[in-house]
């Protein structure tokens, strides 16, 4: 079937199998490999992206279900070379080691900060329930999210358009 999905501000059209999962559409069809796969059971969150502004696990969604929607991936989080406060926070606080879980962590945290601009440590840990990191012990991930929350005005975190490219800026049509 054909799907048209607005990915990081570009309308992407492609022929996919009905069974194609969104994560493979992103990784294989669009070669946006920043979104990772870490499990088979929807448990690890490495594949987290935003679907119409909400964090979802792209391994548990068909590309067909995202047809007509907007998707933001980690590649879309830095706008015009300026990084999202969470990206800064992860670097500032050493919130990553191998980096494999990081895109998913950032996408989940962005959703949290949109809803809860000044989360407590407990709220942060609770929000990360569906994201596994094997390297950091989460300590610095919590700090990175706190850093982003402290260093950014709440309205800015809430308005994803300020930080992400999820507005259609140009029309690129691809067909495979």
């Amino acid at each position: 079937m054909q799907v048209e999905i607005n990915v990081n501000g570009k309308a992407r059209k492609a022929e996919v199998e009905d069974r194609t999962l969104l994560v493979y559409f992103l990784r294989d069809t669009l070669q946006l490999t920043g979104t990772h796969v870490g499990c088979d059971t929807s448990s690890c969150g490495a594949c987290t992206v935003h679907l119409d502004g909400v964090a979802v696990k792209s391994c548990t969604l068909l590309a067909a279900q995202a047809d007509g929607c907007s998707v933001t991936t980690i590649e879309g989080m830095a706008k015009d070379g300026e990084m999202h406060p969470l990206q800064e926070g992860f670097r500032e606080c050493h919130g990553l080691q191998c980096g494999y879980c990081t895109p998913g962590m950032i996408m989940t945290a962005a959703d949290l900060l949109k809803r809860t601009p000044k989360p407590s440590e407990t709220e942060i840990r609770f929000a990360l329930e569906g994201n596994i990191c094997r390297c950091t012990g989460y300590h610095n991930i919590v700090k990175a999210i706190q850093w982003a929350a402290e260093n950014t005005a709440a309205p800015m975190l809430a308005d994803s358009h300020l930080w992400t490219n999820d507005v259609v800026v140009e029309k690129v049509v691809e067909t495979e």
Binding site: R27, Q31, L32, T33, G34, T35, H36, V37, T73, I74, E75, M77, A78, M83, Q87, F90, R91, E92, H94, L96, G99, Y100, T102, P103, I106
Partner: peptide, 23 residues
Amino acid sequence: ESIKRREDKRFITGKGRYTDDIV
């Protein structure tokens, strides 16, 4: 000194390149 990591930029922007990313 706690110098910030130079490798981070590629990982936080989704530009890390793991084996499965290579085509």
